[in-house]
Design a protein around this nucleic acid. Structure first.
Length: 469
RNA sequence: UCCCUUGUAGCUCAGUCGGUAGAGCGGGUGGCUGUUAACCACUAGGUCGGCGGUUCGAGUCCGUCCGGGGGAGCCA
């Protein structure tokens, strides 16, 4: 990126101005006032436009400016400053803007909710429309955007096509949790059949529909046509879960690869995570330093380490053996066949492996119907990527490619074949081994930034009893 | 949904054994100063989350409802 390049009618971004050298040319800076400090003859304004963490110091000689103008420039006000860049006498910045002209665009009276002091993240959630103007949420927003770009960049550069799977779905049986129903019915006057049941034939789609809980099944259809695809879009879960790592509306990334077995799946998952981590470290250095200093001490070093070291591999059976050695530490005693609890996941990643770990070959009973059965008849070709601090960040598998085996599995679980006719067609016509995984985007942002609560890494969190703004 | 915890000034919190409230920051005013979480002084600002109960008296004890946080389950 060229620092001096002008875009459309925009003046230079503050992140670019800060990299310029002192000189006689006029520079214009626009932004919001973070804080103002007065001295006898000069006034210091820290101006931030959100393009970087630390703002530009604007220095206004009090003799040159109307006192009313300077006094109305308070924290939160929006201003335009024109002047020349000079070498700063202060030690916290290389250059500063010596203002020759300041225009107040919008004042911010004392009722402005953001003070020039630390606020709790809980309070900031109540003013979600203003919180991106804070250091922390601004940094999260920049990192989130950078990570989203890295996601596309990784897949686009590695032979994947971006597929948009539907958000509204008629398949009610994906089994991945409670769904939000979509209807245009007047809920006070719902059409009923003669038997008194809801008459969905009169609803908008002529059948019962919900918001998607996963684009995977539709993703598989495009993977078995374009070879490698990925989805990256919103996902909805109506579960009544109240935790710091669940949302009712979140963004999920789901790659799906044809002619790919579980081994390839694991390799891509690791390379993918490491790529977006490295890309973010490279492009968000200032923000990562901030997170590492104030949000989660050492998170930057952790991400550097994780982006360079191979992940540990372990089968479910091996993982249970390891957990049984320390069973006294757990509320839920581990045994072969049990679900791996959050406490187990974290112990595996944090204590046993001290790094991300990929656990594979889970008992079929605790995994989804579409996962490929191993030859032992008991386990499936599933993999979960567990990371320290968070637990599961990726869940994936090699898909069952055999029609008979898939039909048998669905029968065992009471799934109706007619609901999945098109999914089964993929096994009827040109079936191939294929694999994929799902990554919760917000969880990845949490992991990279060290933010404790998922509601602080998405602009407007939707959760149980929470849909403001 | 369950368990724990919390709700006091604009924000963050203190408030002892039940006797109707304090600090820091922020705001305002004044002072000082090339400042950078600026500093110093003064000042304004409160239905103590709502409702009900116990008591001579409730921020404090009890019940209940609502909101916040943490943990669990479910999962991404």
């Amino acid at each position: 990126m060229h620092v001096f390049q002008r875009r459309y009618n925009m003046s230079a971004l503050i992140k670019e101005i800060k990299k310029m050298e002192a000189g006689p040319q006029l520079v214009t800076a626009e932004g919001w006032v973070r804080t103002k400090r007065d001295s006898k003859t000069v006034c210091f304004i820290e101006l931030n436009d959100g393009t970087c963490l630390k703002g530009l110091q604007v220095v206004a000689d009090k003799e040159k400016f109307d006192n009313n103008l300077l006094s109305s420039i308070s924290t939160g006000a929006s201003i335009v400053c024109e002047g020349t860049l000079t070498e700063s006498l202060g030690s916290d910045q290389a250059v500063e803007l010596s203002a020759s002209k300041i225009t107040l665009l919008g004042e911010a009276p004392e009722s402005y909710p953001l003070q020039k002091k630390r606020h709790t993240l809980e309070y900031l959630r109540e003013i979600a429309h203003l919180r991106p103007r804070t250091n922390t949420i601004g940094a999260v927003a920049r990192v989130r955007s950078t990570m989203a770009y890295a996601v596309h960049k990784f897949f686009q550069e590695n032979g994947f096509y971006y597929v948009n799977t539907p958000l509204i779905t008629a398949s009610d049986a994906e089994g991945a949790g409670q769904m939000f129903q979509v209807t245009t019915f007047d809920l006070d006057n719902i059409p009923k059949t003669e038997e008194g049941k809801i008459d969905y034939s009169k609803d908008f789609f002529g059948k019962k529909t919900n918001l998607t809980v996963s684009g995977q099944l539709e993703g598989e259809t495009y993977a078995t046509a374009l070879r490698n695809i990925y989805t990256f879009g919103p996902t909805f879960r109506a579960e009544n879960s109240n935790t710091k790592r669940h949302l009712a509306e979140f963004w999920m990334i789901e790659p799906e690869m044809s002619f790919c077995t579980l081994e390839g799946d694991m390799e891509i998952a690791q390379n993918f995570l490491q790529y977006i981590f490295k890309y973010t470290l490279e492009h968000c250095e200032e923000d990562m330093d901030f997170f590492s200093k104030f949000v989660e001490p050492g998170v930057k070093d952790t991400i550097i380490h994780v982006s360079e070291s191979p992940f540990v591999h372990m089968t479910y059976t091996e993982a249970i053996k390891e957990l049984e050695k320390s069973k006294d530490k757990f509320d839920y005693k581990p045994f072969w066949g049990c679900d791996i609890q959050t406490e187990h996941e974290r112990f595996l990643a944090e204590e046993i492996c001290k790094s991300p770990v990929i656990v594979t070959d889970y008992p079929k009973e605790i995994k989804s119907f579409y996962m490929k059965l191993n030859e032992d008849g008991k386990t499936v070709r599933a993999m979960d990527v567990l990371v320290p601090r968070l637990g599961e960040i990726i869940g994936g598998s090699e898909r069952e490619a055999g029609l008979d085996l898939l039909q048998q599995r669905m029968k065992e679980l009471g799934l109706r074949e007619e609901d999945y006719w098109w999914y089964l067609d993929l096994r009827r016509f040109g079936s191939v081994p294929h694999s994929g995984f799902g990554l919760g985007f917000e969880r990845a942002v949490q992991y990279v930034t060290g933010m404790q609560n998922i509601r602080d890494v998405i602009p407007y969190p939707r959760a149980v009893k929470q849909a403001d703004f």
